[in-house]
């Protein structure tokens, strides 16, 4: 079984204020700070798409897009 799901982490680096909430509470340790102290998905293959990061980001700076979501919309 694959470790995680195929997901895209859309992170708006202009909106992210580097609070670290998403990084700290990610159950799979997917996220880390980049060199500018903004969130980045460095292990996206481990992501289980629980969306806890998206739910708890105070800046609406992170969106989790699961592969297939777009297709479902078309049906």
């Amino acid at each position: 079984m694959a470790k995680g799901k195929t997901v895209q982490h859309l992170i708006d680096k202009e909106w992210c204020k580097g609070c670290g909430i998403c990084i700290h509470f990610c159950p799979k340790n997917v996220l880390e700070f980049d060199k500018n102290d903004k969130a980045e998905a460095i292990r996206p293959e481990d992501c289980i798409a629980c969306k806890l990061c998206e739910l708890r980001c105070p800046d609406l700076a992170i969106q989790i897009i699961e592969d297939g979501e777009g297709e479902n919309e078309k049906q």
Partner: peptide, 11 residues
């Protein structure tokens, strides 16, 4: 501010 909980309420 960075980390202010109000943004989570908004979400």
């Amino acid at each position: 501010c960075p980390g202010c909980g109000h943004g989570i309420v908004l979400g």
